[in-house]
Design a protein around this nucleic acid. Structure first.
Lengths: 337, 337
DNA sequence: TTGAAAGCGGTACCAT
DNA sequence: ATGGTACCGCTTTCAA
């Protein structure tokens, strides 16, 4: 078992002090160390395949150069894509990313945050779960920089990068209305998260703007914990009501995926039997027989901005919060009629 | 800016030594420290919201409890799913996962590995890229534990968890043969990676076993770097040859996704105009009008085993290598005729 | 130009 | 039962 080589090992071999080795290896040309010594040290370092121990550097500097990324589920394509973007952006700033999946569960989220705080991450990017307000407030109290993405808590001042959920939901609902649908159902998560409420509000106000009364029986909420079955039940309810809906707005891509499967199972055809719009894209939609009208989020921008804000905050902690509400775009396809 | 609280802070407040605080906080009941003092220390620690600095612990113990995960692309659902499983399994062993995407690029892979070695990760789980043999050998030289997944280098002794690519490819090709196809094209990556070669070998030997001569013009290889266009070109070539193929075997799900899009664009119908089989599943296939016969990998098992082997290796470095070749299963659907 | 030494936050051996 | 202290590997001040 060959132990890792440290500055001390190099110093011993080169017959110089540890400090000298450190200077040579970190300060490049203008280290103040003489040419001969420098060369010797460099040579030995290379021979020994020296690698600086970043744990020690971190302890010394108080900076870990690690960012904690907490999402609902890293295997969800939406978050996986964000993760990739964040990875790339973080790397540009010399940060490494550790990730954790909260499963939309506040306890798991709390455990993850604590774990990563102990690991001295320099900051967090978090898609916060319902009920995680305390955790977020605690981060603030501890002066640990963080940026919320995808969702945020309006009652808590913080950095965040989200999209204008209200507007996007309004627009996509309008699209259904414009194509002649006035009986529109909505499938949402049963969640108090602001972004979800905003999507519902967008839906509601779009209807009202056209003078249509919002029917709460048409706003269906499903539990994270029982997703597949719940979607199935709720979609059927919407379609078998005394006055069935002619269109459904799915407020996330995961909901849509299971919703579309339900629609298929019921032998209904989009858009002839039923119109459909979705918040978010999904690779799977590319293969659906009917191209799906949906809201497309600017993932790249979200990731870039989140990192930029975070790194900024890490470097200059006095700064005020950055609150970004990006525009999402409506991608019009063939699923509305 | 409130600094983080350390043992020293608690010691000062409690008027005891740092050592005492450490004992109380780490050794629980049988710390050897008296009840009164223990309680006082615990109380103050709680008040001050003390969090052990794991960087310091790591420096001291030489263990970071971090595992480096290197995949081709974390946003690829295959790897995102694996990542999630690895995250969960790692957590059971108290490990945190940092990840990096290599983009199938040996240089990036090397940079990532070096970065994470400097960060003192306790071990790696790697889906190695083409040309990364040197890096793997270096890890061995440095006695850094690692497990290869998805692919491995047969010429390098190491831990790995893969599936039996040859057998799976053989089986899935056989399925095409059994359903009456004898003119079968293959779309693969242009790569020397063993798993890809094994898939091609499975295809070839399945043909030969039925007395069909392998036509190298029907084995098409596409570049990672030019995926979409290349798939389009090669699929067209297969279909517009003097003797066109009646079936195509896509050796990964990403290839299949673009291949199916090409087939759609050419206005061909699966399976009537062309039969299709795929190595790996994809959520997108659920929405394809024709359910796709494919190879399903035991992702959960791969992730679990990879972590188990890795953690074992970390704890008992003398152990011999574990080489796992798991069984993949053939999921028969309707895309062959 | 070079080096001694303090210190980052813990842990654990050895005293007392 | 409690505490002094060395050490993990590195950086940086201060002195020589």
């Amino acid at each position: 078992m060959n132990k890792k080589v440290s500055l001390k090992d190099i110093a011993k071999r080169a017959q110089v002090s540890i400090a000298t080795v450190s200077y040579v290896l970190t300060k490049g040309e203008n280290s103040g160390i003489g040419y001969e010594v420098s060369e010797k040290v460099k040579k030995i370092a290379a021979e020994l395949n020296y690698r600086p121990n970043q744990i020690a550097q971190s302890l010394r500097s108080g900076k870990s150069y690690i960012i904690g990324l907490i999402v609902a589920d890293i295997s969800n394509p939406f978050f996986a894509n964000i993760a990739r973007i964040i990875e790339d952006e973080a790397k540009k700033h010399n940060y490494t990313v550790v990730f954790g999946s909260s499963d939309e569960n506040a306890t798991k989220s709390s455990d993850l945050i604590n774990l990563l705080v102990n690991r001295q991450v320099d900051g967090f990017i978090i898609a916060p779960t319902e009920g995680s307000q305390e955790q977020i407030i605690n981060l603030k109290k501890q002066n640990i920089p963080f940026v919320l993405i995808d969702r945020h808590f309006p009652e808590i001042e913080s950095n965040y990068v989200t999209i204008n959920n209200y507007k996007a939901a309004f627009d996509v609902t309008n699209r259904l209305l414009d194509t002649g649908n006035s009986d529109i159902g909505l499938i949402a998560y049963s969640s108090d998260l602001h972004h979800m409420k905003e999507r519902i509000r967008g839906y509601s106000e779009a209807l009202e703007a056209k003078g249509i009364k919002v029917d709460n029986n048409r706003i269906k909420k499903v539990a994270f914990s029982n997703l597949i079955e719940d979607v199935y039940i709720k979609v059927r309810e919407l379609l078998s009501a005394p006055k069935p809906v002619t269109a459904i707005f799915f407020t996330t891509n995961t909901l849509a995926i299971h919703g579309l499967k339900t629609i298929d199972k019921l032998n209904l055809k989009v858009p002839n039997d039923i119109s459909v719009v979705v918040f978010d894209a999904a690779e799977a939609f590319d293969f659906y027989y009917c191209p799906i009208t949906h809201i497309k989020q600017p993932l790249l921008k979200i990731g870039k901005q989140a990192i930029d804000i975070l790194v900024n905050q890490i470097n200059t902690p006095e700064k005020k919060y950055s609150k970004l509400n990006l525009k999402a775009i409506l991608v019009e396809k063939d699923s509305c009629k």
